[in-house]
Every structure is written in structure tokens, then in C-alpha cells.
């Protein structure tokens, strides 16, 4: 399936929502935030898609107020791959967890929570993954500052 076909397929299932391709990256299908877990459950279980392998999810910080969450997944049955993107509000970033659908989303989401400060309601164990437990702030946000950080002189 191509990204366009994924968008059309999702559009048939959830006709009240709009599915488009990301204008920055035509490989990405934009998902509406409200139905993220349902969409992924559908993509995993539907016979035409069968996305049974969760590659990774990651995040892109786009100040001042956007945060893009990117999911990549693969079907070992149909041998196709797809990327999905969810656009979040940077100041109040939260997206329902998909760790109950794919186990390995668990650590991906913990990592994103740790480094970007995105909350995943429904996640069983949302702790920091990389940084110490008592760390403050989310280092990969572009406006992150830390006393230990010495900026390289130009």
C-alpha cells in the first residue's frame, strides 16, 4: 500500500474524519489526534493492512507551538511499511498510549516522554527512560537549558 492508499483506506473506515498526507513529507499520513488508538488498532487488525510490527515512534520539536509525533510500522504479512504523524500542541502535549497494541511501543513512549515531555495517558509505566529519575525538563526540546550546558562559542 502507498501512503495515499493508507489515507484512503482509513478515510473509508472513519468517514467523519479527514486523512491527508503531510505536506512536509509525502510519506507520512496525518492522523487526527482524537482517534489515534482506534486508528492503530484498526491498522493492526484489518486484513488489508495488518500492521503487526511496530518499528518505532519518535518526535519532532517545532517551536513555537507544534510537536509532531511520528510512528513507523511494518506489516510482516503484506510487506509494506507506513509512517503516521500526529500533530500535538507543544504546550500541552498528550496522546493516548499505543503500548497495549504493540509491546515495544512501551519503551518508545517512555523515551519520548523523557526527552520531549509528551504524556501518554493509558501507559502502564510512564517513567523516564534515559535521564535520571529526578531530572527536570525534557532535554531534546529546542528551548531546553541546563546549568551544565556550555554553549559552543562560534
Amino acid at each position: 500500500m502507498t501512503p495515499g492508499e493508507f489515507a484512503a483506506h482509513l478515510g473509508e473506515q472513519y468517514s467523519e474524519h479527514k486523512f491527508s498526507l503531510d505536506e512536509l513529507n509525502e510519506e507520512c499520513v496525518l492522523l487526527p489526534l482524537e482517534i489515534v488508538p482506534q486508528c492503530f488498532e484498526f491498522l493492526r487488525d484489518d486484513d488489508a493492512t495488518q500492521m503487526d510490527y511496530f518499528d518505532f515512534s519518535t518526535c519532532v520539536d517545532r517551536p513555537p507551538d507544534r510537536l509532531d509525533l511520528v510512528y513507523s510500522m511494518y506489516s510482516t504479512v503484506h510487506k509494506h511499511r507506513a509512517q503516521f504523524k500526529v500533530i500535538l500542541d507543544r504546550h500541552n502535549a498528550a496522546v493516548p498510549s499505543v503500548s497495549h497494541l504493540w509491546e515495544n511501543a512501551n519503551w518508545n513512549e517512555r523515551e519520548i516522554y523523557d526527552l520531549y515531555g509528551v504524556f501518554f495517558p493509558g501507559h502502564k509505566d510512564l517513567r523516564r527512560l534515559m535521564m535520571p529519575d529526578d531530572w527536570e525538563g525534557h532535554p531534546l526540546r529546542k528551548d531546553y537549558a541546563h546549568p551544565n550546558l556550555v554553549v559552543r562559542p562560534d
Binding site: 535521564m131 532535554p139 541546563h146 551544565n148 554553549v151 559552543r152 562559542p153
Partner: peptide, 10 residues
């Protein structure tokens, strides 16, 4: 990692 690093003990 002296410059631009927040996580390394210098």
C-alpha cells in the same frame, strides 16, 4: 562533550 552537552559530568 564539553560543549553543548547537558548530561556529561565534566
Amino acid at each position: 562533550f564539553y560543549h553543548d552537552s547537558y548530561s556529561v559530568l565534566k
